[in-house]
Design a protein around this nucleic acid. Structure first.
Lengths: 222, 222
DNA sequence: ACATTTCTGTTGTAATTACAACAAAAGGAA
DNA sequence: TTCCTTTTGTTGTAATTACAACAGAAATGT
């Protein structure tokens, strides 16, 4: 645990918490660290989730398999994103998603009730923690809406331009690197990979974008 | 305010709160009531939202206009849903959506900080309120994922069957009424209305579903 | 370096969809 | 009722997409 202190301390969940309180809180929250390997499932469809997971390191895809067996990537999560919070807070809800590690991943596991309820110890900054928790779940919410915007476009071209434009805004630059490989991006945008590749090439040829591997440049204002 | 007490008391935000505490809390949260008429915008794209809105009565669509001018319905909200929580909690984020009333609507407006931070008055059930707030935002989260599932299907037929199946599950019955009219449903599923009507007719003819106006019956297991 | 596997791009074709234009039905107002 | 408006259903056509099959490039392991 000790060796992860710095990471935990710098996580957005514990932003604004002093060192001594962090100690007390981690104990109070029955915090544990868990390492997952690439390909491991942190949560699977149907699970009743009882703990919340804060990603300290690594990448996790939130996925779902369609009735027809196609993979659907809902989100790609990183350090400081949480997994399971909305499931635990909803109480006794079966998970509707898989959380699968796409890299080796380090996770902080916490007790939800202890996080949301003020404890006897009355850590004085517990309020800040609750606030951080709201911030984290809200950010997730806003990203889901952004994803809906991306995939709600009618054509492959419009989906790509909307997605790239949103990435550009998030990176505050017209050049940026994306975390998806082509198949993942297709599964995220719910389009055929080959048709997507074709459209990317066309957009490049027409001078709207440029790209090399996962580095993209947006040459137009959307 | 007095005349809305019963509604407020029965809202999921104040579930588990005693009457006397409700009084104190409403004062503490600077709670106000506002009536909107059909067509009114509660939040518009670009707004910096500073209050949270709890729907007591009515229906509100969360919408977004695409760059190309098409309407996108993200969610339809009802009594006990909140509007703006994820925007306020994210702090100084411009709204990426419009919240538009599709009926006359009654809303309870609250101060976010007062809700999430324990107050001096230390209302003893403030913890329950925070818990309720997490439950509300989590439910929204899960519904967004459900919507993503609906619109991530490849064909109009699959989108319809997935949507109807999810509605059926939510209603715990294979017969149910939907809140969307045909154009709204098409805007929610991001498909062409006429093509959707055609597919609905085909599904009915083939015996998979039955419907009359907005009453649907699902005759197959998805 | 080499072999092998994975990832990305390209092309043709069949299937699906959007769109427009119109018909039919339902709902509202005078 | 009748007229008018809104909503829903139907059809044909052009545009878009999925899918399969394959080629080339890049990454990986030995």
């Amino acid at each position: 645990m000790q060796k992860y202190y710095q990471k935990i301390k710098n996580s957005s969940l514990f932003y604004g918490i002093t060192d001594s309180e962090l100690d007390r809180m981690l104990e109070c929250f029955s915090a544990t660290i868990k390492k997952y390997e690439e390909g491991d499932l942190i949560i699977r469809q149907g699970d009743i989730v009882t703990k919340i997971f804060l990603i300290l390191e690594g990448e996790v895809n939130i996925e779902k398999d369609t009735y027809w067996g196609r993979r659907m990537i809902i989100q790609k999560l990183h350090a400081n994103n949480n997994i399971g919070l909305s499931l635990v807070a909803s109480k006794n809800v079966e998970s509707n998603i898989n959380a699968i590690c796409t890299t080796d991943t380090l996770v902080l596991i916490l007790n939800y009730e202890k996080c949301t309820r003020m404890c006897q110890n009355a850590c004085s900054h517990h309020g800040a923690l609750i606030d951080n928790l709201f911030k984290i779940i809200s950010k997730e919410n806003i990203e889901l809406i952004e994803k809906i915007e991306n995939i709600s476009q009618k054509t492959i071209r419009d989906k790509l331009l909307t997605y790239l434009s949103n990435e550009s805004i998030k990176n505050k630059s017209n050049t940026f690197e994306i975390n998806f490989n082509r198949q993942e991006l297709a599964d995220y945008l719910n389009i055929d990979r080959s048709a997507m590749s074709f459209e990317l090439s066309k957009l490049k040829q027409e001078g709207f974008i440029d790209f090399n591997k996962n580095k993209f440049k947006l040459k137009v204002e959307i």
